[in-house]
């Protein structure tokens, strides 16, 4: 009789254990982490080779007829220069690079003072056009 009562008490205790608040908190945490994870900006990457040569030697003396794209500042504006051709926009750059042979690769010589985003655009365009090798050359005067 006594044991039966005790068993009933135990069962009641077990049944009254309320998990609702813990589950509420757990779900709130889960939703928080899900939302913050989604808010992170998606990133990708570009993989240029590196070549350190300063001055006029970069991509000239060391290589046979290299294709050198310069990214520099002229009259306070960032520009792209391919030989004597000057380009200011991505569309122009793409058009000019598209006319070059892919197998020779392209050297992107970046001068000081240019915003990095502008230089990265040049790498992106060269990659999009499937140049076999895209080389970043820092060019400090």
């Amino acid at each position: 009789m006594w044991t039966r009562e005790r068993k009933d008490d135990r069962r009641r205790e077990r049944i009254t254990l309320n998990l609702a608040s813990m589950i509420d908190v757990t779900f709130l945490l889960l939703i928080y982490f899900l939302v913050t994870a989604v808010l992170a900006e998606p990133e990708d990457r570009l993989t240029p080779d590196l070549q350190v040569q300063t001055g006029e030697a970069a991509g000239r003396e060391a290589d046979l007829e290299p294709q050198v794209l310069e990214v520099l500042i002229a009259d306070g504006q960032p520009i792209y220069r391919l030989g004597s051709i000057v380009m200011a926009s991505r569309a122009e750059l793409r058009e000019r690079l598209d006319a070059l042979p892919r197998s020779a690769g392209v050297f992107i010589r970046v001068g000081d003072g240019v915003p990095v985003g502008f230089a990265v655009t040049a790498i992106q365009v060269a990659r999009d056009l499937d140049f076999e090798q895209v080389t970043y050359v820092p060019h400090s005067p």
Binding site: E41, R45, T47, G113, V114, V116, A119, P138
Partner: peptide
């Protein structure tokens, strides 16, 4: 993206000096 490329150039020279031949440059899609 607004960083002066002179800073990146210095970094690239440093990396090349310790033998790094290729880097990955992060972009925001």
């Amino acid at each position: 993206r607004e960083t002066d490329s002179a800073r990146l150039n210095e970094l690239v020279v440093q990396l090349q000096a310790i033998g790094v031949g290729r880097v990955r440059v992060a972009t925001e899609v």
